[in-house]
Design a protein around this nucleic acid. Structure first.
Lengths: 145, 145
DNA sequence: GTGAAATTGAAAATTGATTTCAATAATAGT
DNA sequence: ACTATTATTGAAATCAATTTTCAATTTCAC
């Protein structure tokens, strides 16, 4: 994700922040990892390339990515925050398997529109939203009663 | 909410648990407080009546209420769990104001149905779900840009 | 190069949730 | 009512995730 890295560099510059080896490695790794990583997972991956990089720096870089709008921080009830790369402008929601933990994304414009309707009814101005369906995925549903 | 208190007593009996002054006071207070309370908030309210009641007992009683199905535990991204009394069998979702923190509930069967459709497309079996709209309520939306 | 300003990372602090344990209280059986 | 058994209480300790601190290091503008 070269463009994403460039966007991040632009954000850093704009904020007067410095470019460092650690940040570059963390950001690159983040955009090359699929799905929804925790700080610890990303730290672990990053350390394979450069064992000197500390947990704190990964933590701080993920905060920067979140601030810059290039990552989203999410809570899926497993006790730790997970970060996902923002790829398109399209919002998407999540299916979370309670057995294997797999997180699948989906989009549904009809639901989005109905949400706006609901908000309007309440005089509410939506900034963002979160829709999560918890249950069992195709693979696991047969194994669980 | 007298009936809720009775249901709780039934659950306690069924589980061979004892009835105590502390539990009674906590449960009563919980059902008389509107909305979505954190452990700390409920503890604070309970202490006004009986300053001897400890945080841990409030914590444990909320767990019991959750186990018994009389309360739901929720996470609204402010870092601490919030508990809400289960009043009807109807599922509902939430509008959360980012300025004043007010939490409003809503129901929308069309959205529920569309969620089922999405799940079906993915071969997913939904056990429960969470839909939260974050933004500004009628009161606050005028004050925020 | 030099110096001001930002970054790093180990360790410490903080937060919210959960467990431990000795003292206390509730209930069943007598 | 008495006693034995068992559960409950709450302060303090523990835990796990997150966040802050601070001295040493690195970056970048000049």
């Amino acid at each position: 994700m070269k463009t994403k890295v460039i966007e991040f560099e632009r954000y850093m510059e704009e904020k007067g922040l410095k470019s460092t080896t650690q940040r570059d490695e963390i950001v690159n790794t983040f955009f090359n990892v699929k799905g929804h990583v925790s700080i610890e997972e990303l730290h672990h991956t990053v350390q394979k390339k450069n064992p000197k990089i500390g947990y704190t720096t990964v933590y701080r870089t993920l905060k920067l990515l979140t601030e810059s709008g290039l990552a989203h921080e999410r809570q899926f009830g497993d006790g730790q925050a997970r970060y996902e790369a923002v790829t398109t402008e399209e919002h998407h929601d999540h299916l979370i398997c309670l057995k294997c933990g797999t997180i699948t994304e989906f989009e549904n414009m009809k639901i989005e529109r109905l949400q706006e309707d609901v908000a309007k009814e309440h005089g509410f101005k939506v900034k963002n939203h979160k829709l999560e369906l918890y249950g069992y995925c195709k693979k696991c549903r047969n194994e669980v009663k």
